[in-house]
Simulated assay, not measured.
Amino acid sequence: MPLRREQVVEAALELLDEVGLDGFTTRALTDRLGVQRGALYWHVKSKQELLAAVTELVLRPVFADDGREGGDWADDLVEYAHRLRDAMLAHRDGARLVAAHVTVNRSGVEQLARALERYTSQGIPVPVAARWGDIISSYVTGYVLQEQTAPAGTPPADAEPWFPDGHPSSAETFADSVATIVLGMRAEAASLTPASHPG
């Protein structure tokens, strides 16, 4: 049975989950697939293209159609932030992978266009909506990068006076931070002209 591109990408993601980005090689992937290097490069022209395809696979759940229509733009942004974090945390070195290898292909452009339409329908100008999306994406990627590279352990003992009820979990801190960012965006939305106010 001929090797399919989807098989190559899925196998690459499995290998990445096992060895991480630093240990990933195309030689290890071809050994895993039981094929010669030429068979691999029939489907992807380079390691960079392969990692970009793997990144697209990692991010697929973030943009899965949930059937929602006409949701509040702020709720959409919060949902996007949590989906993005979950997708990166689901894979070893997920944030590093996304930060270094995310690309915008044809399907990505179409997804972006649909997302921007939802914002403009609520009075948010395209440049503002695009900037907000970039802010959220950058924050989430940086946050998860810290989560995935920080040494395991508990908060330092001297943190106790600041958190008498216990140090918040990483998930709680993330959720509160996203809420703060979106609160600032709501304030900006309120400052827009009446014609572009989300209502």
Rank of each mutant, 00 (worst) to 15 (best):
V104I: 12
N105D: 14
N105T: 09
R106N: 08
R106E: 08
S107D: 14
S107M: 12
S107V: 13
S107K: 10
G108Y: 00
V109S: 10
V109D: 05
E110F: 00
E110M: 01
Q111N: 10
Q111W: 06
Q111L: 13
L112K: 10
A113Y: 04
A113N: 12
A115D: 07
A115Q: 07
L116K: 07
E117Q: 09
R118E: 08
T120C: 00
S121D: 05
Q122E: 00
Q122N: 01
P125Q: 09
P125D: 06
P125V: 05
V126N: 03
P127D: 02
V128A: 08
V128T: 09
V128K: 11
A129G: 04
A129F: 02
A129N: 03
W132D: 06
G133E: 02
G133S: 03
I135V: 14
S137M: 04
S137V: 04
S137D: 05
S137Y: 05
Y139F: 01
Y139S: 04
V140W: 07
V140C: 09
T141I: 13
G142D: 09
Y143A: 10
Y143M: 02
V144F: 01
L145P: 04
L145N: 11
Q146A: 13
A150P: 06
A150T: 14
P151R: 14
T154V: 15
P155K: 12
P156W: 15
P156T: 13
P156M: 14
A157P: 03
A157S: 12
A159L: 15
A159T: 13
E160D: 13
E160N: 10
W162N: 11
W162G: 07
F163V: 08
F163I: 05
F163Y: 15
F163Q: 08
P164M: 09
D165K: 13
D165Y: 14
D165N: 14
G166Q: 11
G166Y: 10
H167Q: 08
P168Q: 12
S169T: 13
S170R: 15
S170D: 08
S170Y: 07
S170I: 11
S170L: 14
A171T: 09
E172W: 09
E172M: 13
T173K: 13
T173P: 00
A175E: 07
A175N: 07
A175W: 03
S177I: 05
V178I: 12
A179K: 01
A179I: 02
A179Y: 01
I181A: 05
V182S: 05
